[in-house]
Each structure stands twice: as structure tokens, then as C-alpha cells.
């Protein structure tokens, strides 16, 4: 029922596509973000000294803008940044530690799987409890902090199907008569299947993949999935939330609406994350800046990412995730994709 109630409120805006409803929701979200939740940078200590950050490539340019803003605000901070693919940097951190070297003070990764590589190697410092407590329930970890999230969604075309036709159980999608778009080669899709494997088991996941594969149309990426739904080529798709929101922001009358499953891999929230590799006040306080009200709101409104600090409004066009019940899963366990890729190959999806 909870899901249905939420869906109803979301779909009210989705059904009136291109009307001021969408815009008013966006405005409401933005204004709320500046009023409640999070700690303002005005109340954070000034950062000073040397700090080396390993930055996994992310939302092109916007993470850089955040870092530049933090540097500008803290002129006594000497921030050195090493950039690279997230997984490669995680491997570097582990390799450096094995060689007895710790070059990085902070690691900011675009996906939690890479964080898992570092925390599993016991290289991350325990974070202060007040910092963990800023994060929403289900996203509090002792030695790393999720920064922003993205949620798995079922984008659908309201001209072709009604919200009631979309199953609230991701496993039931396999038995529905809906035509489906998916992007099996896409990294986010593979993380979603990893979550399904962990939650439902190998056999059920294999069955689901085989069944969906019979009716699914494959696309190179998840934007392609969303666009196919919008054009009416299929009824429903499997994609991260931000493609639909971005499409809506540029094309308010797009024929797309979002549905969410309940408490399963279909509504998995994965996240970017940050951890400290050295026990240093500057490193810990730097993480506080990333969790600040201003940075969280900026990433929500500009990058359409989901703030994971309590009380910060979601991106324009997305209802509060407190109404959604994502599965309880340790995000760092999504690191190892190999069994997922093997399974997908075995059933002929890849």
C-alpha cells in the first residue's frame, strides 16, 4: 500500500505531462532543500593544510565544480587531486597499501562497489558518529559515507500502459505481458542484477533473466532504454532514475513516467561514496563539506542525484525517497561483478 500511495502522488505529476505540476514540484523541492536538513558550510570549520584526494570520474564537471568551490572557500587548503576510473583508483589504493605507501587522504568514488574494495582491505578510517548520523537510515556505514544516490526505476509510457499494470515486484515483471527495454551491457544494470542475485539467489535470477530476455529489446545504454519507452517502442524499461528526470527537464511533455517496485532489487539505491584513508581532522572535515546542505542540494538540482543526508530534498521531479522501500543490502557487496557476468553469459543475455 505504501508503494501505491507513493506512486499515486508521483504519477499525478507524471500523468499531467508538461503541465505546471511538474514545474511546481521542482520548485517545491528546491525551496525545501534550502530550508531543512544537513549542516550548512557556514557552520563547518575552515580546512587547512595538504590533502590528497583520489577522485573516480563521475558526473562530468559537476564534482569538479564542487571541489573547486571547496578550495575557493578554504584558501589555506592545498588540495591535490588524482583523477582516474573509479575501479582503477581503488586498485591503486590497495596496491599502494600493500607496498607500504598511503598517498591518498580521501577517496571519492562514483560507485560503492569500488568503496567495497578499499573497505574490505581494511584501509578506511572509522568516521565520527555525528557524521554517520547525518545520513539517512540504511545509508549509515562505520567507515565510509555515501554521498549521493541513484535509484533503479521502471520508466513507462503512460500512453501505452497504466500505472496499475506495472508490477510492484521486480520478479513478477518476468511473468507480465509487458514489452520491456533493457541495456544488459550497462554497468548500472549489472549492479542491479548483482543485487538480485544476492537477494533472490542465482536460480531465481537466472529464471528472471531468461524470461525477460524473451520479450526484451536491448539497447546500448539506459538513455536508449528511456528514449525507447518515450517513443512508445516498448511499454516499460529498466533504468536509473536520472535519465527520465533529465529527459523531462529538457522535454517537459515527454511521454515518460516512473514506477518503483517495493523492497527488492528493482528499486535498489546505489551510491557514490567517500572514505578517509588517514586519521586526519582535515580529511574528516572535508567529508563534512561533501555532506553539507549546500553540496547535497547542488548535486540534487544540477546532477539530479539523490541526496543521502537527512532532510535534503530530492532532485526536481522525484518524490522523497523516504516513500520508497529500497532493499536492505550492503552496497559494498556489489563490487564483484564476475559471478553476475558469468550468469548473464550462461543464460545468453550477454
Amino acid at each position: 500500500m505504501q508503494r501505491r500511495t507513493f506512486l499515486q502522488s508521483l504519477l499525478t505529476s507524471a500523468a499531467i505531462i508538461g503541465t505546471p505540476m511538474w514545474a511546481s514540484r521542482a520548485l517545491a523541492a528546491e525551496s525545501t532543500a534550502t530550508i531543512v536538513g544537513g549542516v550548512s558550510v557556514e557552520n563547518l570549520p575552515e580546512l587547512s593544510g595538504d590533502l590528497t584526494l583520489y577522485l573516480g570520474r563521475g558526473e562530468g564537471g559537476l564534482y569538479e565544480k564542487v571541489l573547486q568551490a571547496i578550495s575557493d572557500r578554504n584558501p589555506k587548503l592545498n588540495l591535490k587531486i588524482r583523477r582516474g576510473p573509479t575501479a582503477a583508483l581503488a586498485n591503486s589504493i590497495v596496491a599502494e597499501a600493500k607496498a607500504g605507501v598511503r598517498r591518498a587522504d580521501i577517496f571519492w568514488a562514483v560507485d560503492s562497489g569500488a568503496i567495497g574494495l578499499v573497505t574490505d582491505a581494511e584501509l578506511a578510517q572509522v568516521l565520527p558518529s555525528d557524521l554517520q548520523e547525518q545520513l539517512k537510515s540504511g545509508f549509515q556505514y562505520p567507515n565510509w559515507a555515501p554521498v549521493t544516490g541513484r535509484i533503479r526505476t521502471l520508466p513507462y509510457n503512460p500512453q501505452r500502459v497504466k500505472a496499475e499494470q506495472i508490477p510492484s515486484d521486480i520478479m513478477a515483471l518476468a511473468d507480465s505481458d509487458l514489452s520491456i527495454a533493457w541495456a544488459p551491457a550497462y554497468a548500472s544494470f549489472q549492479s542491479f542484477i548483482t543485487a538480485m542475485r544476492l537477494l533472490e539467489g542465482e536460480q531465481a535470477t537466472a529464471h528472471w533473466l531468461r524470461a525477460v530476455n524473451k520479450r526484451a529489446k536491448s539497447y546500448a545504454g539506459e538513455l536508449g532504454v528511456v528514449m525507447a519507452v518515450e517513443r512508445g517502442e516498448v511499454d516499460v524499461g529498466l533504468a536509473n532514475h536520472y535519465y527520465s528526470l533529465r529527459l523531462k527537464s529538457g522535454k517537459p511533455n515527454a511521454n515518460i513516467a516512473l514506477a518503483f517496485t517495493d523492497n527488492d532489487a528493482g528499486c535498489l539505491i546505489n551510491s557514490s561514496g567517500v572514505l578517509a584513508l588517514k586519521d586526519s581532522a582535515t580529511a574528516t572535515n572535508f567529508i563534512r563539506y561533501l555532506l553539507s546542505r549546500e553540496v547535497q542540494s547542488y548535486l540534487a538540482t544540477e546532477a539530479y542525484e539523490i541526496p543521502l543526508v537527512k532532510g535534503i530534498a530530492p532532485p526536481p521531479g522525484l518524490a522523497d525517497i523516504s516513500n520508497i522501500r529500497p532493499p536492505k543490502i550492503d552496497l559494498t557487496k556489489l563490487a564483484d561483478l564476475r559471478p553476475t557476468l558469468k550468469l548473464m553469459r550462461d543464460v545468453g543475455v550477454l
Binding site: 562530468g60 564537471g61 559537476l62 538513455l223 536508449g224 529527459l247 522535454k251
Partner: peptide, 24 residues
Amino acid sequence: EGIEGALIAQDADLVEDLEKDFNV
């Protein structure tokens, strides 16, 4: 992939076209 997010809001068809070019 780092720039496609910002570009989708500007011209989603263009991004989809380029995704197809890169991947197919």
C-alpha cells in the same frame, strides 16, 4: 558518459544518436 547527463537535458535525441554511434 561523463558529459551525457548534462547533455540529455539539452538534446536527448542527440545523446541517443551519439550513444548508438559509440556502441553500434
